[in-house]
Design a binder for these strands. Structure first.
Lengths: 148, 148
DNA sequence: GTGAATGGTCAAGCTGCTTGACTATATGCA
DNA sequence: TGCATATAGTCAAGCAGCTTGACCATTCAC
């Protein structure tokens, strides 16, 4: 594949990702969840299954644990999560979503569906599913980092 | 399309975009261009055709013109671009790439091709082209914003 | 010609991240 | 068991990149 083609693919990918992030964020805000940033959504995704420690969250987000701890401070203060004693390690604390945190996560899913809607209209549902499947196959396992 | 499917698509897209950005950046640094950030690449892309004003660059990047001006300061100081008087407007200044700026842009294209290489191996060239075409059709015209 | 709009910069401030230092608990090994 | 080392987390300070606000020079509209 030519360099220019690879660059066009990259640019399109980053442009679409940036717009998608913005639209999801706007949709979440429109549903009444204020003071929440896109990065919080990535944190919620990691906390959702059954909670996580600050260190695990830091690894997931690709930042230092101090930064992750500050982020947790913020979402705790705003009522989206809470810190509980860790059941198996007295050093650690388990960060879990509150009901408001879950509601915000559901709002983000709705907003995502809304943002993807135009793609379905433009490409058709099958094509969008194909897009998803291809992306899932090349998606990394590592931390979720910002696009720039 | 279900909310959860839209969310999976979004997450995969953002993960791939984040990893791609990081790999291109690493590739550029590996080619000897230090002190350059991913955001500079988006600026170079806008400057490449025939230069641009600070205000145009700000619109392209989705930041204030003060921020764009600071970014231009930086890439000028590092030798990637220079400010010239604007041929048609004495208020404005045309920011153009230097030869080093062009070299860095070519390095970014090479790095992009390198980063996309594994996708071609995994999906095949036709599938990657299909991915590019679909992304290009849903790519926005607006500013290139960071993914989060 | 004159008032409003536009391109650009300077200065100050804020936010979110980093590095460095530290405490408390857990783990590995003599 | 006891002690050295590693790990979870926090506090504090600093920094980078962005924002808002103010300002000057030039251009545009009428």
């Amino acid at each position: 594949m030519q360099n220019s083609e690879a660059m066009a693919l990259s640019a399109a990918l980053l442009a679409v990702a940036g717009e998608l992030t913005q639209r999801i964020h706007e949709g979440v805000v429109a549903r009444g969840f204020e003071g929440v940033r896109p990065a919080h959504g990535f944190a919620f995704a990691r906390l959702a299954p059954g909670g996580a420690t600050v260190t695990e969250l830091a690894a997931h987000l690709g930042v230092t644990k101090q930064a992750a701890s500050q982020l947790v401070d913020e979402i705790v203060r705003k009522g989206y999560a809470e810190r509980r004693p860790h059941p198996a390690d007295a050093r650690a604390r388990l960060v879990v979503l509150t009901e408001q945190g879950w509601a915000c996560t559901r709002a983000a899913e709705e907003a995502a569906a809304e943002a993807v809607g135009p793609w379905v209209e433009l490409l058709g549902e099958g094509e969008v599913r194909a897009l998803r499947d291809r992306l899932l196959r090349i998606a990394p396992y590592g931390p979720i980092r910002p696009a720039w």
